[in-house]
Design a protein around this nucleic acid. Structure first.
Lengths: 336, 336
DNA sequence: AAATATGCCTAAAAAGATTTAGGATTTAGC
DNA sequence: GCTAAATCCTAAATCTTTTTAGGCATATTT
């Protein structure tokens, strides 16, 4: 059974393809098609269940109604939650979502962006970019397809961003620790790849620590290698506890570090500290509700990131917004 | 700057559009284009960085090179991990992934399937369907676009499935509990929506329990309402512990129930059981590594589900496989 | 009464690729 | 040296829509 197409409809109704197309695309009034005719067409279309061929439409209009999402890893709950929100928001507006993961690989990211724009012809891209700077994006070809960056910032780049207030949130949680009486706060950071969010969180921590004259040297910010996070965390903790037995809090800059820390604190060599230190983490995950230890955290506005990024992207596509916006969303402190 | 198109290339090279198209689509040999000409064309194409217009190509061939993925909730780690695998496998084959969530809503699922096939023209759909039976899918329109079902089975339906061995895995973990000496094993199940996986897991449990003559009535299988999982779990546990203080194991049929159980066991009213009962769970999650209590589990072959489903889908599209395959993947017991 | 405007609609072009059907050369065979 | 076959390539049709430019009545203006 062949798919119904405009031509068939045209023959059946006795109206031209042009007219039917106009009615279907809401341009009937603009071209002065009578209300009566419009009703007849719409009625037939819904009765016969006609849907325009997507490819022909895209070929003619140059619009795919696809939005691309590029993140480091779609299986990461943080990103998959954002994906869920984006998809929901897009669906209501007649758009669809295409997702890709970069695995933090710049080359792969380049390929994906290229493929999305040149091969798939997406109408916009939302991305948590792995890139360290904006050189690659200072290119005229990105003016046609709008890019909206989420989560991570590209310094010195005048583009579209929807991000968490990493600095503010980090400051708030550090202050909360201090208010609780903590004085020797160990900060676990992440390496090797540069990510703007981590930078901002470190700044929030140090500013807060300095403000309260806690006298914590840079030694208290320990970078953990992401690729061997578990062993690195354990050895870092061992070393730091040995040199500073009076550490009374551990603040991890992301949730992976918090999990690793929880696990490491079960190791015989340092398990005596398990009850002694206060834990804090940037980012809030379900795990924290299920563990004995109360963990202080700031939760990121995941839902808002997805929704805001989507609306911004669509607004730019529709020409309702300029191609340069920065949206910073607040975190909320979760006291446990 | 206008995009390069076949016509331009044709003029520059002095070969027809046909020839260039043939070379680009790997049909040059088939049509007897000389190797020398092929090389010239390929060279020019890569030098000039020409990529065919996706929409024109799709219109002509009727192929979108998109595969759709429909799951209940893409933010669920189980599904997002599968999505990651699918996407990776697809990318290598020149396909892209489009994702949608149904929120366990049959009507929405219908709409999504319809949209994917009729509006977006995907070449295949991988879905963890919310449907209870196959009536909807016994329809000729699904022979053109192949459907591959994952995770959940539709009874009495002769289609494509890639699923976990829920029955076998459940049997194995129950046997493991019994071997450990557990005799009164409480089984927490889920309600209200019917899901085939849960059915199979229950069967595995009861068969194993009967085989060892444990004499556990149906009362020991308690359905928990998914929508108020936390309060329901707590009250169920209270009631069961009150009536059967000798319960020595709790087997939860999914990971949400395990989390809820862990939390409930912290409640003062039943916390005395925390150290007494052995926990077991169908599905293995990172949380289990971070909690004090050793939790027995069976892990699902998430990676294999994604990869197998993808390969099967592409094979059907390429006509290499019949449109009817059932792949059952084994679980693995994780002893803690 | 001719010219202009208005209301409603349509034929044909355009979007950019793939595929069909077939046209020139060149080579092979006798 | 002629024909048949093989080799290499191309013009034109096709896919299905949107959009441009304009046609044809009827109504209104001068």
């Amino acid at each position: 059974m062949k798919r119904l197409q405009l031509e068939d409809l045209s023959k059946q109704l006795g109206y031209s393809k042009t007219l039917i197309s106009m009615v279907l695309n809401g341009k009937a009034d603009q071209y002065g098609i009578s209300k009566k005719t419009q009703a007849i067409v719409l009625d037939a279309v819904s009765k016969l269940d006609y849907t325009p061929n997507k490819f022909a439409k895209a070929l003619r209009t140059g619009k795919s109604n696809f939005i691309g999402l590029i993140v480091a890893d779609i299986s990461n709950p943080f990103y998959s939650t954002i994906a869920k929100n984006i998809e929901g928001t897009l669906f209501d507006r007649g758009y669809n979502l295409m997702v890709c993961s970069t695995d933090e690989d710049e080359e792969r990211e380049k390929k994906l962006i290229d493929m999305m724009i040149n091969q798939q012809g997406v109408d916009g891209i939302i991305l948590a970019s792995t890139f360290k700077n904006a050189d690659y994006f200072n290119n005229p070809r990105f003016t046609k397809t709008p890019l909206v960056f989420i989560d991570r910032i590209l310094p010195l780049f005048n583009g579209n961003f929807v991000v968490t207030d990493n600095y503010g949130g980090s400051k708030e949680i550090t202050e909360a620790l201090i208010k609780k009486g903590c004085k020797k706060i160990l900060c676990l950071s992440i390496t090797p790849s540069y990510i703007s969010t981590i930078d901002d969180r470190i700044k929030g921590y140090t500013d807060s620590v300095e403000k309260h004259n806690l006298n914590l040297s840079d030694e208290f910010i320990v970078p953990i290698n992401f690729n061997k996070i578990q062993e690195d965390t354990l050895s870092a903790l061992k070393k730091m506890f040995f040199m500073h037995p009076d550490i009374d809090a551990i603040y991890t800059l992301n949730n992976n570090l918090a999990s690793a820390t929880l696990k490491a604190l079960k190791d015989k060599s340092i398990s005596s500290y398990y009850d002694k230190v206060q834990l804090a983490c940037f980012d809030d995950i379900e795990l924290f509700n299920l563990v004995d230890k109360p963990i202080l955290s700031v939760s990121q506005p995941v839902d808002d990131i997805g929704r805001n990024a989507t609306l911004l992207t669509l607004d730019i596509i529709d020409g309702k917004k300029e191609n340069k916006s920065m949206i910073v969303l607040p975190t909320s402190l979760i006291v446990r």
